[in-house]
Design a binder for these strands. Structure first.
Lengths: 230, 230
DNA sequence: ATTACTATTTTGCGAGTAG
DNA sequence: TCTACTCGCAAAATAGTAA
């Protein structure tokens, strides 16, 4: 989904809806309200919502009493993308986005996921290396959560999901990163914003980052997300 | 200028130009380049630049050899506005934007400007009070410069400029603020981003803030810009 | 009240091409 | 090569109105 393929009206509508909390919950709204706010006709507002719904950018339930609208995760992602492009536009000299966080121990879930053979194979082909069979959990500092959101707006490396006998495995979104002090390439897996504890980042690399950098729980690390200016 | 009156194409173009440093300097570009990048026809790219130029959003000098384009301050302001709207969309629970800075002594220029009778009169009518005849200079901390840029994206109170015998006086842009610890209303004058030392904010209020809060040079103050959710 | 269909008008794109 | 005109067609807007 390219944000520039949306019309200005659709983007404005999305922003308006998000400002009214439609990213978190279903909100009540009427097409007339939207029409008045944007100084367009009620019909256009209706058609616009219809289209956003078809594109899976919002979910929309309409009735003769009004409408219930909520942004999908794709809808939120469009706003993230726009924010990312805008950040590069307003700071054209920026060469990377910085993150600081502290190392902590998870419950080995990362290890479980990363070592699924189907994922492993895609990591190898998409990132160019076979990752170490575990992840380094980093809790991003409060001052850097915005930066995490910014990175979410960039185009990720997509590790495709798959179906297993027990359950389906989702696509995994990776972002190429650099850990200060470490030579090896690193990729970060950023959970969706909606998750509880969305300030967590899981790092994968060819090597065991924790061992090489001699990290203990609570140690701070600095991470950079490179910005490639076309 | 309402950002929602621009087409998606115009906004994308503006972002693209800014990413290529057109906010700081004239950049060389051809309409064919733009056409290829956005997968549109060369004619549409040409028309689009023409329109942005007419709207004073960019300056554009075209010749049979190519084009020179640069964003005007209005062009940059549109990006700021978009950023501001996006910020509210991505953080709908935010009730204010915080600034921290340190007090310093200027050379009395603020005092000179504020006390022009024509300005004084507009301050009274637009802000509802006659400001103290001096400004409090605040140097905004590095971590808060982004927040300053955000505030720039909001709709300011505009104190109209005027012509005097000696020289013209520009419009003054004010933003309603709150200084923590002070009851009285405060307004901030934020210089244009292009100025050297754009991390400076001049506060005006009915009272002498420095005296009431007993501020010395170097003291830190905390400022809030309230966000009104429509 | 709503949403949303149909008809009509307006806007805007791209192709061809001149300067 | 560039920019930028005219023209024909397609997309999208509004108005009227039905459900």
């Amino acid at each position: 989904m390219d944000i520039f393929s949306l019309s200005s009206r659709e983007i404005s509508l999305l922003i308006y809806l998000a400002q009214n909390r439609a990213a978190e919950k279903e909100i009540e709204i009427t097409t007339t309200q939207l029409a008045n706010f944007f100084k367009i006709s009620q019909q256009t507002a209706s058609r616009c919502l219809l289209k956003l719904n078809e594109m899976r950018i919002v979910t929309w339930k309409s009735s003769p009493k009004g409408s219930l609208v909520m942004l999908t995760s794709q809808g939120t992602h469009i706003l993230d993308q726009l924010r990312f492009e805008l950040e590069k536009a307003l700071h054209p000299d920026l060469t990377f986005i910085e993150l600081k966080g502290t190392v902590f121990s998870g419950r080995g879930e990362g290890k479980y996921y990363v070592s699924r053979p189907a994922y492993m194979k895609s990591f190898q082909s998409q990132l160019g290396y076979k990752p170490y069979h575990g992840t380094l959990n980093v809790r991003i500092g409060n001052n850097y959560i915005d930066h995490l959101d910014l990175i979410r707006g960039s185009w990720p490396v997509i590790i495709p999901g798959f179906e297993s006998e027990e359950r389906p495995f989702d696509d995994v979104l990776c972002y190429p990163l650099k850990v200060i002090g470490l030579e090896d390439k690193v990729a970060g897996i950023i959970p969706r914003r909606t998750h509880y504890g969305a300030n967590v980042l899981e790092l994968i690399s060819k090597v065991c980052i924790r061992d090489i950098l001699n990290l203990a729980d609570g140690d701070e690390i600095v991470i950079e997300f490179p910005l490639t200016h076309d």
